[in-house]
Protein backbone atom coordinates (compact mmCIF):
# COMPACT_ATOMS: atom_id res chain seq x y z
CA UNK A 1 0.00 0.00 0.00
CA UNK A 2 1.29 3.41 -0.85
CA UNK A 3 3.01 4.88 2.13
CA UNK A 4 2.33 8.54 2.42
CA UNK A 5 3.35 8.44 6.05
CA UNK A 6 5.50 11.43 6.66
CA UNK A 7 7.95 11.96 9.46
CA UNK A 8 6.40 12.51 12.80
CA UNK A 9 7.31 15.20 15.25
CA UNK A 10 8.51 18.33 13.57
CA UNK A 11 7.18 17.63 10.16
CA UNK A 12 9.62 16.99 7.42
CA UNK A 13 10.47 19.57 4.86
CA UNK A 14 8.27 18.40 1.98
CA UNK A 15 5.24 18.65 4.18
CA UNK A 16 6.36 22.01 5.51
CA UNK A 17 6.80 23.35 1.98
CA UNK A 18 3.39 22.08 0.96
CA UNK A 19 1.79 23.53 4.08
CA UNK A 20 3.31 26.96 3.72
CA UNK A 21 2.25 27.16 0.08
CA UNK A 22 -1.28 25.87 0.49
CA UNK A 23 -2.26 27.23 3.89
CA UNK A 24 -2.04 30.94 2.99
CA UNK A 25 -3.93 30.22 -0.21
CA UNK A 26 -6.63 28.43 1.80
CA UNK A 27 -6.92 31.33 4.22
CA UNK A 28 -7.05 33.80 1.35
CA UNK A 29 -9.75 31.73 -0.34
CA UNK A 30 -11.76 31.58 2.88
CA UNK A 31 -11.47 35.32 3.37
CA UNK A 32 -12.40 35.83 -0.25
CA UNK A 33 -15.40 33.62 0.29
CA UNK A 34 -16.81 35.87 2.94
CA UNK A 35 -16.08 39.05 1.02
CA UNK A 36 -17.07 38.02 -2.49
CA UNK A 37 -20.00 39.90 -3.91
CA UNK A 38 -21.42 37.12 -5.99
CA UNK A 39 -22.61 34.01 -4.21
CA UNK A 40 -21.28 31.72 -6.94
CA UNK A 41 -17.77 33.06 -6.38
CA UNK A 42 -18.14 32.24 -2.69
CA UNK A 43 -19.17 28.71 -3.53
CA UNK A 44 -16.20 28.16 -5.80
CA UNK A 45 -13.78 29.59 -3.27
CA UNK A 46 -15.22 27.29 -0.61
CA UNK A 47 -14.75 24.34 -2.96
CA UNK A 48 -11.12 25.37 -3.29
CA UNK A 49 -10.69 25.49 0.47
CA UNK A 50 -12.18 22.02 0.75
CA UNK A 51 -9.79 20.62 -1.82
CA UNK A 52 -6.88 22.16 0.02
CA UNK A 53 -8.10 20.56 3.21
CA UNK A 54 -8.33 17.22 1.42
CA UNK A 55 -4.66 17.58 0.47
CA UNK A 56 -3.86 18.31 4.12
CA UNK A 57 -5.75 15.22 5.23
CA UNK A 58 -3.82 13.03 2.84
CA UNK A 59 -0.58 14.55 4.03
CA UNK A 60 -1.52 13.75 7.62
CA UNK A 61 -2.08 10.02 7.05
CA UNK A 62 -5.83 10.32 6.70
CA UNK A 63 -6.05 8.85 3.25
CA UNK A 64 -9.62 7.60 3.38
CA UNK A 65 -10.81 10.89 4.78
CA UNK A 66 -8.98 12.89 2.14
CA UNK A 67 -10.60 10.98 -0.67
CA UNK A 68 -14.00 11.10 1.01
CA UNK A 69 -13.58 14.84 1.46
CA UNK A 70 -13.10 15.29 -2.25
CA UNK A 71 -15.76 12.85 -3.32
CA UNK A 72 -18.47 13.61 -0.76
CA UNK A 73 -17.87 17.05 0.60
CA UNK A 74 -16.53 18.87 -2.44
CA UNK A 75 -18.07 16.64 -5.02
CA UNK A 76 -21.55 16.18 -3.62
CA UNK A 77 -22.22 18.83 -1.01
CA UNK A 78 -20.62 21.77 -2.82
CA UNK A 79 -22.19 20.75 -6.09
CA UNK A 80 -25.55 20.70 -4.34
CA UNK A 81 -24.81 24.22 -3.14
CA UNK A 82 -24.00 25.28 -6.66
CA UNK A 83 -27.18 23.74 -8.01
CA UNK A 84 -29.28 25.53 -5.45
CA UNK A 85 -27.44 28.78 -6.14
CA UNK A 86 -28.21 28.40 -9.81
CA UNK A 87 -31.85 27.81 -9.00
CA UNK A 88 -32.22 30.47 -6.45
CA UNK A 89 -29.89 33.35 -6.82
CA UNK A 90 -27.25 33.14 -9.46
CA UNK A 91 -27.60 36.78 -10.27
CA UNK A 92 -28.32 37.83 -6.75
CA UNK A 93 -25.32 39.67 -5.45
CA UNK A 94 -25.29 40.86 -1.89
CA UNK A 95 -24.94 44.53 -1.71
CA UNK A 96 -21.97 44.96 0.56
CA UNK A 97 -23.50 48.06 2.10
CA UNK A 98 -24.41 47.07 5.59
CA UNK A 99 -27.81 48.09 6.89
CA UNK A 100 -27.21 47.69 10.56
CA UNK A 101 -25.01 50.53 11.64
CA UNK A 102 -21.95 49.55 13.54
CA UNK A 103 -22.18 45.88 12.62
CA UNK A 104 -19.21 46.08 10.27
CA UNK A 105 -16.73 47.54 12.74
CA UNK A 106 -18.13 45.41 15.54
CA UNK A 107 -17.67 42.24 13.55
CA UNK A 108 -14.16 43.23 12.52
CA UNK A 109 -13.31 43.77 16.16
CA UNK A 110 -14.91 40.44 17.04
CA UNK A 111 -13.02 38.72 14.24
CA UNK A 112 -9.68 40.07 15.29
CA UNK A 113 -10.52 39.36 18.89
CA UNK A 114 -11.66 35.78 18.42
CA UNK A 115 -8.95 34.94 15.92
CA UNK A 116 -6.23 36.53 17.98
CA UNK A 117 -7.46 34.86 21.13
CA UNK A 118 -7.56 31.45 19.55
CA UNK A 119 -4.21 31.73 17.86
CA UNK A 120 -2.43 33.15 20.86
CA UNK A 121 -3.93 30.62 23.23
CA UNK A 122 -3.10 27.76 20.96
CA UNK A 123 0.35 29.23 20.57
CA UNK A 124 0.92 28.97 24.28
CA UNK A 125 -0.25 25.40 24.25
CA UNK A 126 2.61 22.98 24.13
CA UNK A 127 0.23 20.13 23.49
CA UNK A 128 1.57 18.16 26.43
CA UNK A 129 2.33 14.95 24.60
CA UNK A 130 4.69 14.38 21.75
CA UNK A 131 3.30 13.83 18.35
CA UNK A 132 2.74 10.12 18.11
CA UNK A 133 1.89 9.90 14.49
CA UNK A 134 -0.36 7.38 12.87
CA UNK A 135 2.07 4.80 11.59
CA UNK A 136 1.09 2.41 14.36
CA UNK A 137 -2.63 3.03 14.09
CA UNK A 138 -2.45 2.72 10.34
CA UNK A 139 -0.39 -0.43 10.46
CA UNK A 140 -3.15 -2.51 8.93
CA UNK A 141 -3.97 0.23 6.47
CA UNK A 142 -5.86 3.44 7.03
CA UNK A 143 -9.14 2.14 5.66
CA UNK A 144 -8.92 -1.02 7.74
CA UNK A 145 -8.11 1.00 10.84
CA UNK A 146 -11.08 3.30 10.38
CA UNK A 147 -13.30 0.34 9.61
CA UNK A 148 -12.29 -1.35 12.82
CA UNK A 149 -13.19 1.69 14.91
CA UNK A 150 -16.30 2.49 12.95
CA UNK A 151 -17.84 -0.96 13.10
CA UNK A 152 -16.86 -1.95 16.60
CA UNK A 153 -16.62 1.13 18.79
CA UNK A 154 -18.91 3.54 17.00
CA UNK A 155 -21.36 1.14 15.42
CA UNK A 156 -24.30 2.61 17.35
CA UNK A 157 -23.68 6.14 16.12
CA UNK A 158 -23.20 4.71 12.64
CA UNK A 159 -26.64 3.14 12.74
CA UNK A 160 -28.32 6.22 14.19
CA UNK A 161 -26.90 8.34 11.39
CA UNK A 162 -29.23 6.44 9.10
CA UNK A 163 -32.12 8.15 10.90
CA UNK A 164 -30.52 11.44 9.92
CA UNK A 165 -30.32 10.43 6.30
CA UNK A 166 -33.95 9.37 6.23
CA UNK A 167 -34.97 12.62 7.89
CA UNK A 168 -33.07 14.60 5.29
CA UNK A 169 -34.69 12.76 2.40
CA UNK A 170 -38.15 12.98 3.96
CA UNK A 171 -37.73 16.64 4.74
CA UNK A 172 -36.57 17.52 1.27
CA UNK A 173 -39.58 15.75 -0.16
CA UNK A 174 -41.97 17.48 2.20
CA UNK A 175 -40.70 20.91 1.26
CA UNK A 176 -40.18 20.36 -2.42
CA UNK A 177 -42.45 17.64 -3.73
CA UNK A 178 -45.89 18.62 -4.86
CA UNK A 179 -48.19 15.74 -5.44
CA UNK A 180 -50.64 16.22 -8.23
CA UNK A 181 -54.04 17.21 -6.90
CA UNK A 182 -56.07 17.08 -10.07
CA UNK A 183 -55.08 14.94 -12.93
CA UNK A 184 -54.33 16.92 -16.05
CA UNK A 185 -56.53 16.34 -19.03
CA UNK A 186 -54.66 14.56 -21.75
CA UNK A 187 -54.57 15.65 -25.34
CA UNK A 188 -57.27 13.26 -26.42
CA UNK A 189 -59.69 14.49 -23.77
CA UNK A 190 -59.00 18.11 -24.68
CA UNK A 191 -59.67 17.40 -28.34
CA UNK A 192 -62.95 15.65 -27.56
CA UNK A 193 -63.99 18.53 -25.33
CA UNK A 194 -63.31 21.04 -28.11
CA UNK A 195 -65.54 19.26 -30.58
CA UNK A 196 -68.28 18.45 -28.18
CA UNK A 197 -68.57 22.07 -27.04
CA UNK A 198 -71.60 24.32 -27.56
CA UNK A 199 -70.33 25.86 -30.79
CA UNK A 200 -67.73 24.85 -33.27
CA UNK A 201 -66.34 28.36 -33.39
CA UNK A 202 -63.31 27.36 -31.37
CA UNK A 203 -62.96 23.84 -32.70
CA UNK A 204 -59.65 24.73 -34.27
CA UNK A 205 -58.46 26.34 -31.05
CA UNK A 206 -58.57 29.92 -29.87
CA UNK A 207 -56.62 32.51 -31.86
CA UNK A 208 -53.22 33.35 -30.46
CA UNK A 209 -52.34 36.83 -29.24
CA UNK A 210 -52.03 39.46 -31.87
CA UNK A 211 -54.34 37.78 -34.39
CA UNK A 212 -57.07 40.36 -33.92
CA UNK A 213 -54.94 43.46 -33.55
CA UNK A 214 -55.93 46.07 -36.04
CA UNK A 215 -52.91 48.34 -36.04
CA UNK A 216 -49.38 48.63 -34.78
CA UNK A 217 -48.92 52.37 -34.77
CA UNK A 218 -46.86 53.83 -31.99
CA UNK A 219 -49.38 56.45 -31.10
CA UNK A 220 -52.42 54.21 -30.72
CA UNK A 221 -52.71 52.44 -27.38
CA UNK A 222 -52.99 48.67 -27.31
CA UNK A 223 -56.17 46.99 -26.15
CA UNK A 224 -56.44 44.96 -22.98
CA UNK A 225 -58.35 41.65 -23.12
CA UNK A 226 -61.54 43.31 -21.96
CA UNK A 227 -61.40 45.89 -24.73
CA UNK A 228 -60.21 48.91 -22.80
CA UNK A 229 -57.04 50.69 -23.90
CA UNK A 230 -53.92 49.90 -21.94
CA UNK A 231 -52.52 53.14 -20.50
CA UNK A 232 -48.94 51.93 -20.26
CA UNK A 233 -48.60 50.93 -23.87
CA UNK A 234 -47.93 54.46 -25.07
CA UNK A 235 -44.81 56.46 -24.42
CA UNK A 236 -45.44 59.12 -21.79
CA UNK A 237 -43.94 61.77 -24.03
CA UNK A 238 -46.51 61.17 -26.72
CA UNK A 239 -49.25 61.24 -24.18
CA UNK A 240 -47.98 64.50 -22.72
CA UNK A 241 -47.69 66.08 -26.17
CA UNK A 242 -51.24 65.09 -26.88
CA UNK A 243 -50.27 62.98 -29.85
CA UNK A 244 -52.13 59.93 -28.62
CA UNK A 245 -54.91 58.78 -30.90
CA UNK A 246 -58.01 57.13 -29.61
CA UNK A 247 -58.24 53.42 -30.06
CA UNK A 248 -62.01 53.49 -30.41
CA UNK A 249 -62.10 53.09 -34.19
CA UNK A 250 -59.94 50.02 -33.86
CA UNK A 251 -61.98 48.15 -31.30
CA UNK A 252 -64.02 45.22 -32.49
CA UNK A 253 -67.76 45.84 -32.66
CA UNK A 254 -69.99 43.52 -30.75
CA UNK A 255 -71.56 41.01 -33.01
CA UNK A 256 -75.16 40.07 -32.59
CA UNK A 257 -75.80 36.46 -31.68
CA UNK A 258 -75.70 34.38 -34.80
CA UNK A 259 -78.57 32.25 -35.80
CA UNK A 260 -77.36 28.71 -36.17
Amino acid sequence: MINFALEVGPTATPEAVMFWILAPIAVAAAAGMIFAKKAVHSALLLAWVMITLAIFYIAQDALFLGIVQIVVYTGAVMMLFLFILMLVGVDSSDSLVENIRGLRPASIVAAVGLGGLLVSLIGRATLGTDVVGLSAANSGGNVQGIAEELFTKYVWAFEVVSALLITAALGAMVLAHSSVIKSRTAQRDQSIARFRGASLANAAGLPSSGVFSRHNAVDVPALLPDGTPAPTSISKTLEARGDMLSSKPFELEEKEAEED
Binding site: Y154, W156, V160, L164, G171
Partner: peptide
Protein backbone atom coordinates in the same frame (compact mmCIF):
# COMPACT_ATOMS: atom_id res chain seq x y z
CA UNK B 1 -18.86 13.37 21.47
CA UNK B 2 -19.60 11.65 18.20
CA UNK B 3 -22.86 10.24 19.56
CA UNK B 4 -23.67 13.57 21.20
CA UNK B 5 -23.19 15.43 17.94
CA UNK B 6 -25.16 12.89 15.92
CA UNK B 7 -27.98 12.92 18.46
CA UNK B 8 -27.99 16.72 18.49
CA UNK B 9 -28.45 16.79 14.74
CA UNK B 10 -31.01 13.98 14.69
CA UNK B 11 -33.17 15.87 17.15
CA UNK B 12 -32.69 19.24 15.48
CA UNK B 13 -33.19 18.60 11.78
CA UNK B 14 -36.83 17.47 12.00
Amino acid sequence: FITLFVALEVLSLP
